[in-house]
Design a binder for these strands. Structure first.
Lengths: 239, 239
DNA sequence: CGAACTGTTGAGAGGCTTCAAGCCTAGTGG
DNA sequence: CCACTAGGCTTGAAGCCTCTCAACAGTTCG
């Protein structure tokens, strides 16, 4: 953890067009010196599809920034069923809760497709928090965003029907991952995982999706999801 | 907002045994000078039972620390039904999300009984964040605690039955507000609000409570809730 | 090519909500 | 201080939504 410059260790992302550290809001706040200190002490990690990043109840240190790919963050309920809390993608941060509280992880994280993470060790992050308010503020804002989303989700799941929640979740995925020029959702997700996001069982989710297809709101070729009538979906979602 | 000492404005709480600023974890991290600056610029506010502190969609600035009483924090769903997100009590902070993001409030807060809050204006809080890492860290840890609780609640509400969630919520209230020597819960809460916490309708919550009474797990004299068999409640809650 | 996983539909059961009616209590005003 | 009234509490009945169980089709990947 010394501060001697070690050019060999200089990481690729800063120069690679596909995934640049500068794209991450928190890193924009760092000075050149601070950025160098981060780069000298951080590691780029590659994960295959379905590889576990960390597991509920385990100890892990530092922050993980998503440079590329998608990470599924979830909890296992008492009956062994997954509840998906979010899909983190490029620019998102995971693992900050354990870092700040020194507690064991309360969620699990798994690569949902080929994923590249940037791991910054605990000591470096804590240094940045103490010396760079802009970095800290961005982190706090990110936490606030997640808290707001959690509060909305709690209210929805407690009060809306499966049909309403499914419509809403599809629209959320659309906003987060986008659609192509044919209105095809840009994330491939299994029915089971969709159900685990919505908070229902696979069969119920499939029935609702079939309803949406029959009502010409969606097309469902293979595992793709194509939006046909976003306005009506919004009306159903009640947002 | 000048820094001239104004002894007249020195607030009571610091010396009143009932509610002392020193009891709030974040304030423990402040230097004497910082504490004085806070005191010179903050206001003690009293709220009657049912008084609104802030409303969803409104703008409010600064942090509210609970010195005494209980604050109900909730959201209104699409159908107008309340979802209670938490009961804040002595030592808790509310309103930090709007402060950090400069967005409108995404929840409402109401005094649940006679309540005393300590309001610290935005500028002062932001100064403290920038100059005192201990204060900032405590705030972040508080946010992490709420995020963890949100994640657990999402998983529970998505996967557990009303009966399980009701048992769990009673145990959470017991841990947060305590019981007296007769095992009586130290918060008086209406059935409707209990239902709004659990995420169900009043009638369903009442039916479950009646079951618990018939099974000798609870006694329900008037509006009091007396615990008779905490072990069995834990078994039902599945925790 | 076959095994394992994913997707789909049907039937049935049961948990939860809705609607309705009446009782109880806490707080208010005379 | 007491009567009154509004709001909180409770139970019943009916029906819908969602889950469970089961069977089978389609897909993916070693």
């Amino acid at each position: 953890m010394d501060t001697i410059v070690q050019p060999r260790k200089r990481v690729q992302p800063i120069i690679n067009g596909d995934y640049r550290l500068q794209d991450i809001p928190m890193f924009k706040k760092l000075s050149e010196d601070e950025m160098l200190r981060v780069e000298l002490n951080s590691v780029v990690k590659n994960y295959n599809k379905r590889a576990v990043i960390y597991r509920e109840g385990s100890r892990h240190s530092g922050l993980y920034f998503v440079l590329k790919g998608i990470v599924k963050v979830y909890k296992i309920g008492g009956n062994g069923k997954q509840q998906i809390l979010k899909f983190a993608q490029k620019g998102d941060v995971i693992g900050y809760r354990s870092l700040l509280t020194n507690e064991l992880a309360c969620t699990s994280a798994k690569a949902y497709e080929e994923t590249i993470l940037y791991h910054v060790p605990q000591q470096i992050v804590m240094e940045l928090f103490q010396q760079n308010w802009g970095f800290t503020h961005e982190t706090m804002k990110f936490m606030c965003k997640e808290l707001k989303e959690s509060n909305m989700f709690i209210t929805d799941i407690a009060q809306k029907s499966v049909r309403e929640r499914a419509a809403e979740m599809l629209l959320i995925l659309k906003d987060e991952f986008g659609i192509d020029s044919y209105n095809t959702l840009q994330i491939t997700i299994t029915r089971e995982d969709l159900a685990n996001m919505v908070g229902t069982v696979t069969e119920s989710l499939i029935r609702v999706m079939s309803e949406f297809r029959n009502e010409k709101l969606l097309e469902l070729p293979g595992r793709k999801i194509v939006f046909r009538d976003i306005a009506k979906l919004k009306a159903i979602a009640n947002i």
